[in-house]
Design a protein around this nucleic acid. Structure first.
Lengths: 204, 204
DNA sequence: TGCATCCGATACGTTGTCGTATTCAATTCG
DNA sequence: CGAATTGAATACGACAACGTATCGGATGCA
Protein backbone atom coordinates (compact mmCIF):
# COMPACT_ATOMS: atom_id res chain seq x y z
CA UNK A 1 0.00 0.00 0.00
CA UNK A 2 2.42 2.64 -1.19
CA UNK A 3 -0.11 5.27 -2.23
CA UNK A 4 -3.87 5.24 -2.52
CA UNK A 5 -3.62 7.90 -5.17
CA UNK A 6 -6.61 7.57 -7.48
CA UNK A 7 -5.38 7.74 -11.05
CA UNK A 8 -6.79 10.77 -12.79
CA UNK A 9 -9.72 9.87 -14.97
CA UNK A 10 -8.56 11.01 -18.37
CA UNK A 11 -10.91 11.09 -21.35
CA UNK A 12 -9.12 8.14 -22.85
CA UNK A 13 -9.56 6.07 -19.73
CA UNK A 14 -13.23 6.90 -19.51
CA UNK A 15 -13.71 5.88 -23.13
CA UNK A 16 -12.17 2.46 -22.71
CA UNK A 17 -14.08 1.86 -19.48
CA UNK A 18 -17.28 2.68 -21.35
CA UNK A 19 -16.44 0.38 -24.21
CA UNK A 20 -15.56 -2.45 -21.87
CA UNK A 21 -18.76 -1.98 -19.86
CA UNK A 22 -20.89 -1.91 -22.99
CA UNK A 23 -19.21 -5.03 -24.29
CA UNK A 24 -19.67 -6.70 -20.93
CA UNK A 25 -23.40 -6.04 -20.92
CA UNK A 26 -23.67 -7.73 -24.31
CA UNK A 27 -21.58 -10.73 -23.40
CA UNK A 28 -23.19 -11.18 -20.00
CA UNK A 29 -26.60 -11.18 -21.65
CA UNK A 30 -25.48 -13.75 -24.18
CA UNK A 31 -23.59 -16.17 -21.97
CA UNK A 32 -24.45 -15.25 -18.43
CA UNK A 33 -22.25 -13.82 -15.74
CA UNK A 34 -20.26 -16.98 -15.06
CA UNK A 35 -20.26 -18.11 -18.65
CA UNK A 36 -18.63 -14.92 -19.86
CA UNK A 37 -14.87 -14.88 -19.54
CA UNK A 38 -12.81 -11.74 -19.15
CA UNK A 39 -11.26 -12.62 -22.48
CA UNK A 40 -14.71 -12.72 -24.13
CA UNK A 41 -15.51 -9.26 -22.86
CA UNK A 42 -12.19 -7.80 -23.95
CA UNK A 43 -12.46 -9.34 -27.38
CA UNK A 44 -15.91 -7.87 -27.84
CA UNK A 45 -14.66 -4.47 -26.75
CA UNK A 46 -11.61 -4.66 -28.96
CA UNK A 47 -9.08 -4.70 -26.14
CA UNK A 48 -6.84 -7.24 -24.49
CA UNK A 49 -6.98 -8.45 -20.94
CA UNK A 50 -4.19 -6.05 -20.10
CA UNK A 51 -6.55 -3.16 -20.70
CA UNK A 52 -9.21 -4.83 -18.61
CA UNK A 53 -7.04 -5.30 -15.54
CA UNK A 54 -5.75 -1.79 -15.92
CA UNK A 55 -9.32 -0.52 -15.52
CA UNK A 56 -11.03 -3.06 -13.29
CA UNK A 57 -9.63 -5.12 -10.49
CA UNK A 58 -11.84 -8.10 -11.28
CA UNK A 59 -14.97 -9.23 -13.05
CA UNK A 60 -16.91 -8.66 -9.85
CA UNK A 61 -15.65 -5.12 -9.74
CA UNK A 62 -16.98 -4.54 -13.24
CA UNK A 63 -20.32 -6.12 -12.36
CA UNK A 64 -20.83 -3.69 -9.52
CA UNK A 65 -20.36 -0.71 -11.79
CA UNK A 66 -22.45 -2.26 -14.53
CA UNK A 67 -25.40 -2.91 -12.25
CA UNK A 68 -25.30 0.68 -11.07
CA UNK A 69 -25.40 2.02 -14.61
CA UNK A 70 -28.14 -0.46 -15.43
CA UNK A 71 -30.38 0.84 -12.66
CA UNK A 72 -29.57 4.48 -13.17
CA UNK A 73 -30.48 4.20 -16.82
CA UNK A 74 -33.84 2.75 -15.86
CA UNK A 75 -34.54 5.56 -13.40
CA UNK A 76 -33.74 8.03 -16.16
CA UNK A 77 -36.13 6.34 -18.53
CA UNK A 78 -38.89 6.40 -15.95
CA UNK A 79 -38.34 10.12 -15.46
CA UNK A 80 -38.50 10.76 -19.17
CA UNK A 81 -41.58 8.62 -19.65
CA UNK A 82 -43.38 10.50 -16.92
CA UNK A 83 -42.83 13.73 -18.79
CA UNK A 84 -45.20 12.68 -21.57
CA UNK A 85 -48.41 14.65 -21.69
CA UNK A 86 -51.79 13.30 -20.65
CA UNK A 87 -50.47 9.93 -19.62
CA UNK A 88 -52.63 7.68 -17.46
CA UNK A 89 -51.01 5.37 -14.93
CA UNK A 90 -51.22 2.33 -17.16
CA UNK A 91 -49.96 4.31 -20.14
CA UNK A 92 -47.07 5.57 -18.07
CA UNK A 93 -46.09 2.06 -17.07
CA UNK A 94 -46.38 0.89 -20.63
CA UNK A 95 -44.21 3.78 -21.74
CA UNK A 96 -41.66 2.88 -19.12
CA UNK A 97 -41.29 -0.68 -20.23
CA UNK A 98 -41.62 0.18 -23.89
CA UNK A 99 -38.80 2.66 -23.37
CA UNK A 100 -36.57 -0.01 -21.91
CA UNK A 101 -35.10 -0.26 -25.34
CA UNK A 102 -35.50 0.89 -28.88
CA UNK A 103 -35.57 -2.54 -30.41
CA UNK A 104 -36.63 -5.86 -28.96
CA UNK A 105 -33.02 -7.05 -29.05
CA UNK A 106 -31.96 -4.62 -26.40
CA UNK A 107 -35.17 -5.15 -24.47
CA UNK A 108 -34.23 -8.79 -24.26
CA UNK A 109 -30.79 -7.76 -23.12
CA UNK A 110 -32.25 -5.60 -20.41
CA UNK A 111 -34.43 -8.39 -19.08
CA UNK A 112 -31.68 -10.97 -19.11
CA UNK A 113 -29.25 -8.66 -17.40
CA UNK A 114 -31.78 -7.74 -14.75
CA UNK A 115 -32.32 -11.43 -14.09
CA UNK A 116 -28.58 -12.08 -13.94
CA UNK A 117 -28.07 -9.27 -11.47
CA UNK A 118 -30.92 -10.57 -9.34
CA UNK A 119 -29.48 -14.08 -9.24
CA UNK A 120 -26.10 -12.68 -8.41
CA UNK A 121 -27.66 -10.62 -5.64
CA UNK A 122 -29.43 -13.63 -4.19
CA UNK A 123 -26.11 -15.46 -3.98
CA UNK A 124 -23.78 -12.74 -2.78
CA UNK A 125 -24.68 -10.70 0.32
CA UNK A 126 -22.55 -7.73 -0.73
CA UNK A 127 -24.10 -7.58 -4.18
CA UNK A 128 -27.50 -8.08 -2.58
CA UNK A 129 -27.27 -4.93 -0.53
CA UNK A 130 -26.31 -2.85 -3.55
CA UNK A 131 -28.92 -4.38 -5.81
CA UNK A 132 -31.66 -4.05 -3.21
CA UNK A 133 -30.89 -0.35 -2.84
CA UNK A 134 -30.99 0.13 -6.58
CA UNK A 135 -34.27 -1.72 -6.93
CA UNK A 136 -35.71 0.44 -4.18
CA UNK A 137 -34.70 3.56 -6.07
CA UNK A 138 -36.38 2.31 -9.22
CA UNK A 139 -39.54 1.43 -7.34
CA UNK A 140 -39.65 4.76 -5.54
CA UNK A 141 -39.37 6.54 -8.85
CA UNK A 142 -42.22 4.48 -10.24
CA UNK A 143 -44.35 5.12 -7.18
CA UNK A 144 -43.93 8.86 -7.63
CA UNK A 145 -44.80 8.67 -11.29
CA UNK A 146 -47.82 6.45 -10.77
CA UNK A 147 -49.13 8.60 -7.94
CA UNK A 148 -48.96 11.64 -10.16
CA UNK A 149 -50.69 9.90 -13.04
CA UNK A 150 -53.40 8.47 -10.83
CA UNK A 151 -54.09 11.86 -9.27
CA UNK A 152 -54.17 13.42 -12.71
CA UNK A 153 -56.87 10.96 -13.69
CA UNK A 154 -58.77 11.40 -10.46
CA UNK A 155 -58.53 7.71 -9.67
CA UNK A 156 -58.06 5.88 -6.41
CA UNK A 157 -55.98 2.72 -6.43
CA UNK A 158 -57.61 -0.25 -4.73
CA UNK A 159 -54.24 -1.11 -3.20
CA UNK A 160 -51.28 0.90 -1.91
CA UNK A 161 -49.26 2.38 -4.74
CA UNK A 162 -46.13 0.50 -3.78
CA UNK A 163 -47.89 -2.83 -3.96
CA UNK A 164 -49.34 -1.82 -7.29
CA UNK A 165 -45.88 -0.96 -8.57
CA UNK A 166 -44.44 -4.22 -7.31
CA UNK A 167 -47.22 -6.09 -9.05
CA UNK A 168 -46.67 -4.13 -12.25
CA UNK A 169 -42.96 -4.91 -12.23
CA UNK A 170 -43.61 -8.59 -11.65
CA UNK A 171 -46.18 -8.70 -14.42
CA UNK A 172 -43.99 -6.86 -16.89
CA UNK A 173 -40.93 -8.99 -16.22
CA UNK A 174 -42.97 -12.15 -16.13
CA UNK A 175 -44.66 -11.53 -19.45
CA UNK A 176 -41.41 -10.48 -21.10
CA UNK A 177 -39.82 -13.66 -19.87
CA UNK A 178 -42.70 -15.80 -21.05
CA UNK A 179 -42.49 -14.15 -24.43
CA UNK A 180 -38.79 -14.92 -24.71
CA UNK A 181 -39.31 -18.55 -23.86
CA UNK A 182 -42.49 -19.04 -25.89
CA UNK A 183 -42.50 -16.28 -28.51
CA UNK A 184 -45.82 -17.20 -30.09
CA UNK A 185 -47.77 -17.68 -26.90
CA UNK A 186 -48.35 -14.09 -25.86
CA UNK A 187 -48.74 -11.00 -27.97
CA UNK A 188 -46.77 -7.95 -26.98
CA UNK A 189 -47.95 -6.46 -23.73
CA UNK A 190 -51.12 -8.54 -23.60
CA UNK A 191 -50.69 -9.43 -19.97
CA UNK A 192 -50.13 -5.90 -18.76
CA UNK A 193 -52.84 -4.55 -21.04
CA UNK A 194 -55.49 -6.81 -19.57
CA UNK A 195 -54.37 -7.04 -15.98
CA UNK A 196 -53.18 -3.54 -15.15
CA UNK A 197 -56.52 -1.81 -15.81
CA UNK A 198 -58.18 -4.23 -13.42
CA UNK A 199 -55.64 -3.40 -10.75
CA UNK A 200 -56.22 0.27 -11.46
CA UNK A 201 -59.91 -0.24 -10.86
CA UNK A 202 -60.72 1.01 -14.33
CA UNK A 203 -61.72 -2.20 -16.02
CA UNK A 204 -63.62 -0.78 -18.94
CA UNK B 1 -20.42 -47.02 -32.68
CA UNK B 2 -20.11 -50.72 -31.97
CA UNK B 3 -23.49 -51.19 -30.35
CA UNK B 4 -26.22 -48.78 -29.34
CA UNK B 5 -27.31 -51.19 -26.64
CA UNK B 6 -28.90 -49.27 -23.77
CA UNK B 7 -27.30 -50.45 -20.53
CA UNK B 8 -29.87 -51.96 -18.23
CA UNK B 9 -30.92 -49.60 -15.46
CA UNK B 10 -30.04 -51.50 -12.34
CA UNK B 11 -31.12 -50.32 -8.90
CA UNK B 12 -27.59 -49.27 -8.11
CA UNK B 13 -27.34 -47.15 -11.22
CA UNK B 14 -30.65 -45.46 -10.51
CA UNK B 15 -29.54 -44.67 -6.99
CA UNK B 16 -26.35 -42.94 -8.04
CA UNK B 17 -28.15 -41.02 -10.79
CA UNK B 18 -30.61 -39.81 -8.18
CA UNK B 19 -27.89 -38.75 -5.80
CA UNK B 20 -26.02 -36.92 -8.53
CA UNK B 21 -29.17 -35.14 -9.72
CA UNK B 22 -30.08 -34.11 -6.19
CA UNK B 23 -26.57 -32.80 -5.61
CA UNK B 24 -26.66 -30.97 -8.91
CA UNK B 25 -29.86 -29.14 -8.02
CA UNK B 26 -28.23 -27.94 -4.82
CA UNK B 27 -25.01 -26.84 -6.44
CA UNK B 28 -26.74 -25.22 -9.41
CA UNK B 29 -28.91 -23.22 -7.04
CA UNK B 30 -25.87 -22.11 -5.07
CA UNK B 31 -23.48 -21.26 -7.88
CA UNK B 32 -25.52 -21.17 -11.03
CA UNK B 33 -25.40 -23.46 -13.99
CA UNK B 34 -22.13 -22.18 -15.39
CA UNK B 35 -20.57 -21.57 -12.02
CA UNK B 36 -21.02 -25.16 -10.93
CA UNK B 37 -18.33 -27.55 -12.10
CA UNK B 38 -18.84 -31.23 -12.64
CA UNK B 39 -16.35 -31.74 -9.85
CA UNK B 40 -18.48 -29.62 -7.48
CA UNK B 41 -21.52 -31.72 -8.21
CA UNK B 42 -19.67 -35.01 -7.76
CA UNK B 43 -18.09 -33.89 -4.53
CA UNK B 44 -21.50 -32.94 -3.16
CA UNK B 45 -22.93 -36.28 -4.22
CA UNK B 46 -20.02 -38.20 -2.76
CA UNK B 47 -18.76 -39.54 -6.06
CA UNK B 48 -15.88 -38.86 -8.39
CA UNK B 49 -16.05 -37.57 -11.92
CA UNK B 50 -15.65 -41.12 -13.16
CA UNK B 51 -19.08 -41.95 -11.78
CA UNK B 52 -20.53 -38.85 -13.33
CA UNK B 53 -19.36 -39.58 -16.85
CA UNK B 54 -20.47 -43.14 -16.46
CA UNK B 55 -24.01 -41.88 -15.90
CA UNK B 56 -24.26 -38.67 -17.92
CA UNK B 57 -22.60 -37.75 -21.15
CA UNK B 58 -22.19 -34.10 -20.16
CA UNK B 59 -23.38 -31.39 -17.84
CA UNK B 60 -25.95 -30.37 -20.45
CA UNK B 61 -27.27 -33.89 -20.53
CA UNK B 62 -27.78 -33.77 -16.78
CA UNK B 63 -29.50 -30.39 -17.03
CA UNK B 64 -32.06 -31.74 -19.45
CA UNK B 65 -33.03 -34.52 -17.09
CA UNK B 66 -33.01 -32.21 -14.10
CA UNK B 67 -35.33 -29.69 -15.70
CA UNK B 68 -37.75 -32.45 -16.58
CA UNK B 69 -37.85 -33.69 -13.00
CA UNK B 70 -38.18 -30.11 -11.81
CA UNK B 71 -41.31 -29.50 -13.88
CA UNK B 72 -42.84 -32.90 -13.26
CA UNK B 73 -42.51 -32.38 -9.54
CA UNK B 74 -44.35 -29.07 -9.85
CA UNK B 75 -47.19 -30.66 -11.82
CA UNK B 76 -47.48 -33.29 -9.13
CA UNK B 77 -47.69 -30.67 -6.42
CA UNK B 78 -50.38 -28.82 -8.31
CA UNK B 79 -52.39 -32.01 -8.59
CA UNK B 80 -52.04 -32.69 -4.91
CA UNK B 81 -52.93 -29.15 -3.92
CA UNK B 82 -56.07 -29.28 -6.04
CA UNK B 83 -57.25 -32.29 -4.09
CA UNK B 84 -57.74 -30.22 -0.94
CA UNK B 85 -61.36 -29.77 0.04
CA UNK B 86 -63.27 -26.51 -0.28
CA UNK B 87 -60.43 -24.63 -1.85
CA UNK B 88 -61.12 -21.37 -3.66
CA UNK B 89 -59.03 -20.39 -6.65
CA UNK B 90 -56.78 -18.05 -4.69
CA UNK B 91 -56.41 -20.64 -1.91
CA UNK B 92 -55.50 -23.25 -4.46
CA UNK B 93 -52.81 -21.04 -5.94
CA UNK B 94 -51.49 -20.23 -2.53
CA UNK B 95 -51.40 -23.92 -1.69
CA UNK B 96 -49.54 -24.60 -4.87
CA UNK B 97 -46.79 -22.15 -4.18
CA UNK B 98 -46.72 -22.91 -0.50
CA UNK B 99 -46.28 -26.54 -1.40
CA UNK B 100 -43.28 -25.76 -3.55
CA UNK B 101 -41.23 -26.71 -0.60
CA UNK B 102 -41.42 -27.63 3.04
CA UNK B 103 -38.97 -25.04 4.24
CA UNK B 104 -38.03 -21.67 2.80
CA UNK B 105 -34.57 -22.99 1.93
CA UNK B 106 -35.91 -25.35 -0.64
CA UNK B 107 -38.44 -22.81 -1.83
CA UNK B 108 -35.52 -20.53 -2.57
CA UNK B 109 -33.85 -23.40 -4.35
CA UNK B 110 -36.91 -23.96 -6.46
CA UNK B 111 -37.11 -20.32 -7.49
CA UNK B 112 -33.44 -20.01 -8.32
CA UNK B 113 -33.46 -23.22 -10.34
CA UNK B 114 -36.53 -22.13 -12.24
CA UNK B 115 -34.81 -18.88 -13.09
CA UNK B 116 -31.65 -20.67 -14.15
CA UNK B 117 -33.59 -22.98 -16.41
CA UNK B 118 -35.40 -20.04 -17.93
CA UNK B 119 -32.18 -18.17 -18.66
CA UNK B 120 -30.69 -21.30 -20.11
CA UNK B 121 -33.77 -21.71 -22.29
CA UNK B 122 -33.57 -18.14 -23.53
CA UNK B 123 -30.00 -18.75 -24.66
CA UNK B 124 -30.21 -22.23 -26.12
CA UNK B 125 -32.86 -23.04 -28.77
CA UNK B 126 -32.86 -26.74 -27.97
CA UNK B 127 -33.31 -26.17 -24.26
CA UNK B 128 -35.93 -23.55 -25.08
CA UNK B 129 -38.20 -25.99 -26.86
CA UNK B 130 -38.05 -28.44 -23.99
CA UNK B 131 -38.55 -25.81 -21.31
CA UNK B 132 -41.41 -24.15 -23.17
CA UNK B 133 -43.21 -27.48 -23.40
CA UNK B 134 -42.72 -28.10 -19.71
CA UNK B 135 -43.96 -24.64 -18.78
CA UNK B 136 -47.00 -25.20 -20.93
CA UNK B 137 -47.76 -28.42 -19.08
CA UNK B 138 -47.50 -26.64 -15.74
CA UNK B 139 -49.76 -23.85 -16.93
CA UNK B 140 -52.32 -26.23 -18.36
CA UNK B 141 -52.46 -28.06 -15.08
CA UNK B 142 -52.99 -24.78 -13.26
CA UNK B 143 -55.69 -23.72 -15.69
CA UNK B 144 -57.60 -26.93 -15.04
CA UNK B 145 -57.29 -26.53 -11.31
CA UNK B 146 -58.29 -22.87 -11.32
CA UNK B 147 -61.26 -23.50 -13.59
CA UNK B 148 -62.51 -26.16 -11.21
CA UNK B 149 -62.05 -23.95 -8.20
CA UNK B 150 -63.73 -20.98 -9.84
CA UNK B 151 -66.70 -23.07 -10.91
CA UNK B 152 -66.94 -24.49 -7.41
CA UNK B 153 -67.20 -20.96 -6.05
CA UNK B 154 -69.64 -19.89 -8.73
CA UNK B 155 -67.34 -17.08 -9.85
CA UNK B 156 -66.61 -15.72 -13.27
CA UNK B 157 -63.08 -14.56 -13.99
CA UNK B 158 -62.84 -11.08 -15.53
CA UNK B 159 -60.12 -12.40 -17.86
CA UNK B 160 -59.46 -15.71 -19.60
CA UNK B 161 -58.22 -18.34 -17.20
CA UNK B 162 -54.94 -18.74 -18.99
CA UNK B 163 -54.12 -15.06 -18.68
CA UNK B 164 -55.10 -15.22 -15.04
CA UNK B 165 -52.75 -18.16 -14.51
CA UNK B 166 -49.94 -16.39 -16.33
CA UNK B 167 -50.46 -13.35 -14.16
CA UNK B 168 -50.54 -15.47 -11.02
CA UNK B 169 -47.28 -17.18 -11.94
CA UNK B 170 -45.61 -13.85 -12.64
CA UNK B 171 -46.86 -12.40 -9.39
CA UNK B 172 -45.77 -15.39 -7.34
CA UNK B 173 -42.32 -15.59 -8.85
CA UNK B 174 -41.88 -11.83 -8.73
CA UNK B 175 -42.79 -11.54 -5.09
CA UNK B 176 -40.63 -14.52 -4.13
CA UNK B 177 -37.75 -12.91 -5.94
CA UNK B 178 -38.30 -9.56 -4.30
CA UNK B 179 -38.40 -11.27 -0.96
CA UNK B 180 -35.08 -12.99 -1.59
CA UNK B 181 -33.41 -9.74 -2.58
CA UNK B 182 -35.03 -7.57 0.07
CA UNK B 183 -36.12 -9.94 2.83
CA UNK B 184 -37.69 -7.27 5.03
CA UNK B 185 -39.60 -5.43 2.36
CA UNK B 186 -42.50 -7.77 1.80
CA UNK B 187 -44.24 -10.09 4.19
CA UNK B 188 -44.90 -13.61 3.03
CA UNK B 189 -47.45 -13.76 0.26
CA UNK B 190 -48.56 -10.17 0.66
CA UNK B 191 -48.49 -9.47 -3.04
CA UNK B 192 -50.54 -12.49 -4.02
CA UNK B 193 -52.91 -12.01 -1.10
CA UNK B 194 -53.82 -8.47 -2.11
CA UNK B 195 -53.64 -8.72 -5.88
CA UNK B 196 -55.12 -12.12 -6.66
CA UNK B 197 -58.55 -11.43 -5.11
CA UNK B 198 -58.82 -8.34 -7.26
CA UNK B 199 -58.05 -10.35 -10.36
CA UNK B 200 -60.59 -12.90 -9.24
CA UNK B 201 -63.17 -10.14 -9.04
CA UNK B 202 -63.76 -10.86 -5.39
CA UNK B 203 -62.10 -7.85 -3.79
CA UNK B 204 -63.76 -7.93 -0.42
C1' DT C 1 11.34 19.20 -29.34
C1' DG C 2 12.29 16.41 -25.56
C1' DC C 3 10.88 14.28 -21.25
C1' DA C 4 7.71 12.03 -18.22
C1' DT C 5 3.65 9.70 -17.57
C1' DC C 6 -0.19 7.05 -18.87
C1' DC C 7 -2.29 3.04 -20.61
C1' DG C 8 -3.00 -0.67 -23.37
C1' DA C 9 -0.46 -4.85 -25.55
C1' DT C 10 2.41 -8.79 -24.92
C1' DA C 11 4.34 -12.69 -22.77
C1' DC C 12 4.43 -15.85 -19.16
C1' DG C 13 3.63 -19.09 -15.29
C1' DT C 14 -0.17 -20.99 -12.60
C1' DT C 15 -4.31 -23.13 -11.71
C1' DG C 16 -8.69 -25.26 -12.51
C1' DT C 17 -11.56 -28.13 -15.34
C1' DC C 18 -12.45 -31.22 -18.66
C1' DG C 19 -13.02 -35.86 -20.82
C1' DT C 20 -11.01 -40.33 -21.47
C1' DA C 21 -8.45 -44.53 -20.81
C1' DT C 22 -7.65 -47.77 -17.58
C1' DT C 23 -7.99 -50.28 -13.17
C1' DC C 24 -10.23 -52.62 -9.61
C1' DA C 25 -14.11 -54.10 -6.75
C1' DA C 26 -18.66 -55.73 -6.55
C1' DT C 27 -22.52 -58.13 -8.42
C1' DT C 28 -24.78 -61.11 -11.41
C1' DC C 29 -25.39 -65.34 -13.47
C1' DG C 30 -24.22 -69.84 -15.20
C1' DC D 1 -18.17 -71.38 -6.67
C1' DG D 2 -16.06 -69.42 -10.73
C1' DA D 3 -16.51 -66.42 -14.87
C1' DA D 4 -18.36 -62.46 -16.92
C1' DT D 5 -20.09 -58.03 -16.58
C1' DT D 6 -21.16 -53.80 -14.46
C1' DG D 7 -19.93 -49.42 -12.29
C1' DA D 8 -17.23 -46.35 -9.77
C1' DA D 9 -12.30 -44.85 -8.73
C1' DT D 10 -7.88 -43.48 -10.45
C1' DA D 11 -4.62 -41.49 -13.39
C1' DC D 12 -3.47 -38.82 -17.23
C1' DG D 13 -2.97 -35.33 -20.99
C1' DA D 14 -4.90 -31.30 -22.96
C1' DC D 15 -6.53 -26.87 -22.67
C1' DA D 16 -8.85 -22.75 -21.15
C1' DA D 17 -8.86 -18.85 -18.10
C1' DC D 18 -6.64 -16.29 -14.83
C1' DG D 19 -3.63 -12.53 -13.02
C1' DT D 20 0.90 -10.34 -13.23
C1' DA D 21 5.11 -8.40 -14.76
C1' DT D 22 6.98 -6.08 -18.36
C1' DC D 23 7.27 -3.56 -22.69
C1' DG D 24 6.38 0.05 -26.02
C1' DG D 25 3.73 3.57 -28.19
C1' DA D 26 0.92 7.50 -27.46
C1' DT D 27 -0.16 11.68 -25.03
C1' DG D 28 0.41 15.68 -22.15
C1' DC D 29 3.45 19.21 -20.76
C1' DA D 30 7.38 22.37 -20.42
Amino acid sequence: MTTTAEPRITARRRATRDRVLEAASEVFAERGFHGATVEDICERAGFTRGAFYSNFSSKDDLVVELSQRHSEALVDRIRRASKREHAGADEVLRDVFAALADDSRSKERWLVLTTEFTLHAIRDPEARRAWAAQQRRVRDELVTVVDEAVARQGLTLPIPTELFVRAAISLAQGSMTQRLVEPRSLTVGELERTVLPILLGVAD
